[in-house]
Design a binder for these strands. Structure first.
Lengths: 121, 121
DNA sequence: AGAGAAGAATTACACGTGTAATCGACAGGG
DNA sequence: CCCTGTCGATTACACGTGTAATTCTTCTCT
């Protein structure tokens, strides 16, 4: 699967959330903080099309864009890459890391335990 | 903390594993698959120095390089970024993701459970 | 002493990315 | 029917990154 840059990912998020959308609609939904012009958003859309992670269909003289890949798939691929690179592919090493850094609230812990328990049945 | 590119990270790994090292030593320890020339490794070292994540001390007419940041710190920062970006900062969402993708072996599950149990005391 | 090896520093260059501006086509309002 | 705004397409440009080669300096061996 083609890699998606960080800025491009912002655009994908918009479309994963709601699709299909026109370029203008996407621009309107991109988080304020990015402060992007419509032109910038259009560049992103072209590049994402070129990467094959978006498709577009014509709607009069504009396009409606929609994701060509599923968010879960991409997220899974990216998480996998990180776990491989930084934790030797060992998920428990990641969890240990988070624990050591106090990134786990008691609620998180409980939730994860429930989740794991369900897996074993 | 300065961001470290993927190739640069390879070099950091070498030095986190063993330091201080000369440029030639680092080059010798970089994984074969990268197929890097000594020149390339030296470029990486310079850039990492410029980013402030390495330090060097003189040893005769060459340098000995060593990490200026701790691996755990960098790994924590990167994992945090991923979890924020892709899982809205929710660790359980990440774990659920991994579970849904069968990324968790029974051994992993057991290990994580033990880990979490230890946290609650 | 001179030549070659070994180091770091400098320069190179293509590709991806963030961030647009500009261009050319067309549609709708006056 | 023409102007103006709206589209997508094309072009721009600087910075980071992967991947070196070249240059300048100094040490060492003959």
């Amino acid at each position: 699967m083609e890699r998606i840059a960080e800025g491009e990912y912002t655009v994908m998020e918009v479309l994963w959330d709601e699709a299909p959308l026109t370029a203008a609609d996407v621009a309107a939904r991109v988080p304020e903080e990015r402060g992007w012009s419509l032109a910038t958003v259009k560049t992103m859309l072209s590049r994402l099309l070129a990467k094959g992670v978006l498709t577009h269909e014509e709607d009069g003289r504009r396009y409606l864009y929609r994701p060509a890949i599923r968010r879960e798939d991409y997220v899974a691929a990216e998480s996998g890459r990180l776990i491989d690179r930084m934790f030797g592919g060992r998920v428990p090493a990641l969890v240990a890391q988070l624990a050591a850094r106090d990134k786990l609230t008691p609620a998180d812990i409980a939730e994860i335990e429930t989740l794991l328990k369900a897996l074993k049945s």
